[in-house]
Design a protein around this nucleic acid. Structure first.
Lengths: 195, 195
DNA sequence: CTAGTATGGGAACGATCGCTCCACAAGTTG
DNA sequence: CAACTTGTGGAGCGATCGTTCCCATACTAG
């Protein structure tokens, strides 16, 4: 209808996500965002309303990319479920360190930074958490049904422990803990699953 | 030598700790601190140099009180080590919710908010983490030596898993997850310890 | 009581915060 | 081409940021 945009909205959201991921919500200013996204304030505010809304978009983008990718990696497989789980856990702890900076998981960082103070944020972090748990649950069920995991395994309980371990791993990765110890943790968690 | 202070430094640090704990570093302004601590800027800056240094004091205070209390609770006991561990884990997840607000653990919140960007902060969070691990390690050794835990238990590996689980529990508590599920997690973690 | 010294109160500094506004640019529509 | 619509650039809004400075205050030492 009129003048076309000079930027790709998805790309801009992706870069905003990256910045929020590395620095957190409060430590990221709109000017930082403007520079990183090569966007003037007017374009940014016209497109995204305000910083808070852009942050929600970033959370949604993260869920749609990183989280979804994680779920796919976990689900994909005719491999033994234990191997799939191990690869997935190690990937969680290894992958995000592509630029050398330890940034953990945006959802975990956000949940701890903002706590329960922001309902719109909380809804999104909880939704992301629930997706992870569901993926773990289905993998464990599958593994148990295929006889790769003990028939006596209490899946729901195991999911809680695994999920909690994942959060802990994310924190440790953000804190820069070395990979060897995180790998030990992963293997110990897996051993705890089997009899 | 001169005019005496109208405030107790320890008390002020304690209240600053509380505020940083609830809101995080970046979201807590000097003016917020001034109100909460009933301290004018001049007194605050004269006493603590600047916001960052006050925050380091808060971290140290947290380690000297909350963390130390936690370590004592874990160590204290002629009770079976498994019971001691269970009580401790549940206390970690229950206690901090005294004013209704879920605030998690200051060390975990700080580690995820600031990552590895601030060396002075990182040193303190890592030290706090290491104290927790050491306490867990000695408890597990004791339990194994007393025959309450399997003689085959790989203590170091178990410490990694338990420690990671603790971090995950702290995140979940901050995120407002309900106590029942956290309790399930604790019990599952303990079951994973024994054979 | 006087001199000396550290503190408390609070105005205000420059910088930055999130955000708005408006003139101009760049397209579409007739 | 003119009329219209939407996007861009950037100055700049009021508020707040972390911090400093000055002065009256309240204490100790002699």
């Amino acid at each position: 209808m009129a003048r076309p945009r000079q930027f790709d909205e998805q790309d801009v959201v992706a870069r905003a996500t990256d910045l929020f991921w590395r620095r957190g919500y409060h430590a990221t200013s709109v000017r930082d965002l403007g520079e990183e996204l090569e966007l003037t304030p007017s374009s940014m505010y016209r497109t995204f309303k305000d910083k808070h809304t852009l942050f929600l978009r970033a959370l949604d983008h993260y869920r749609a990319t990183e989280s979804t990718q994680a779920e796919e990696r976990l689900g994909a497989g005719d491999r033994p479920s234990r191997d799939a789980l191990r690869d997935w856990l190690l990937w969680l702890v290894t992958c995000p360190t592509d630029d050398g900076a330890a940034r953990g998981c945006l959802v975990v960082n956000t949940a701890t930074e903002l706590g329960t103070t922001d309902p719109e944020v909380s809804r999104r972090t909880e939704a992301a958490f629930e997706v992870t748990r569901a993926a773990l649950r289905s993998l464990l069920h599958e593994g148990r049904d295929r006889g790769e995991l003990p028939a006596t395994l209490d899946v729901d309980a195991a999911v809680e422990l695994l999920f909690t371990t994942v959060l802990g791993l994310r924190v440790r990765e953000r804190a820069g803990h070395d990979l060897d110890r995180l790998t030990t943790t992963v293997d110990t968690a897996l051993r705890a699953l089997g009899a």
